[in-house]
């Protein structure tokens, strides 16, 4: 047997791939579903927190900053293990899927809050003054004048962060969420063959490479500043 044949047998084994393809494709659906939920919930929550912080109510702002700092400082895997193994012992059992969703959503929200807040503070003071001088209230100015500009300014870093955190859905495999990685490692240990792992890697690249390339484009497009 040639070296190539051995390689193909181990990493591109058609028989093994065919047997485990359905379960791995099921994992794709889990990964995509989780990613979408996390992106939507995390960005909405983070933006809402950044807006709340704009009201500069001292105790509230402090809480928001502490939340954002803690979730930006801690490795998500630490929080995932804490949530998954710790919570049931205090009578609060969440499914692995729910734990992963909650932790990664909060993590993305923390980063989003920080990024959007930077955008809000970078919006020129004159924009606030112009809007307020026409009789618009604080909230109206925030929503219709400042936030649209802030969000535009931070789209590139926000996109990068969202991609990085949705990729972390792979951490779910550690606590048994049946995502791509989990299905692939299971298939690998049953079949004693590395093909499922290569397939999983290819699927991740297929899912995330377009996003990575799109974020590169976004960065180039948003490089201008008026």
């Amino acid at each position: 047997m040639s070296a190539w044949d051995r390689f193909a047998e181990t990493f591109l084994n058609g028989e093994v791939l065919a047997r485990y393809l359905p379960s791995i494709l099921g994992g794709v659906w889990v990964t995509v579903e989780l990613s979408l939920l996390i992106v939507v919930a995390g960005i909405l929550l983070g933006t809402a927190l950044a807006c709340l912080r704009a009201y500069r109510i001292a105790p509230l702002s402090l809480l928001i900053v502490v939340f954002a700092d803690v979730f930006r400082s801690l490795p998500p895997l630490v929080l995932i293990l804490m949530g998954y193994f710790g919570l049931p012992n205090v009578g609060f059992t969440l499914s692995a899927f729910a734990v992963l969703f909650v932790i990664l959503t909060l993590t993305l929200a923390a980063f989003t809050e920080e990024i959007v807040w930077a955008g809000i503070t970078a919006t020129p003071k004159g924009q606030w003054e112009a809007a307020r001088s026409t009789g618009m209230g604080f909230s109206q100015t925030l929503v219709w004048v400042v936030l649209p500009q802030a969000v535009r300014m931070v789209i590139p870093p926000l996109t990068n962060r969202a991609i990085a955190i949705t990729k972390m859905t792979a951490l779910g495999s550690v606590i048994g969420v049946p995502d791509i990685l989990n299905q692939a490692t299971t298939a690998q240990s049953f079949s004693g063959n590395a093909s499922p792992l290569l397939l999983a890697s290819a699927l991740y690249v297929l899912l995330f490479l377009p996003l990575v390339i799109a974020s590169r484009r976004l960065e180039a497009r948003f490089a201008w500043r008026t």
Partner: peptide, 11 residues
Amino acid sequence: DLFRALPPLVL
């Protein structure tokens, strides 16, 4: 881009 697309745990 390839290595930015792959989750580190998968790698």
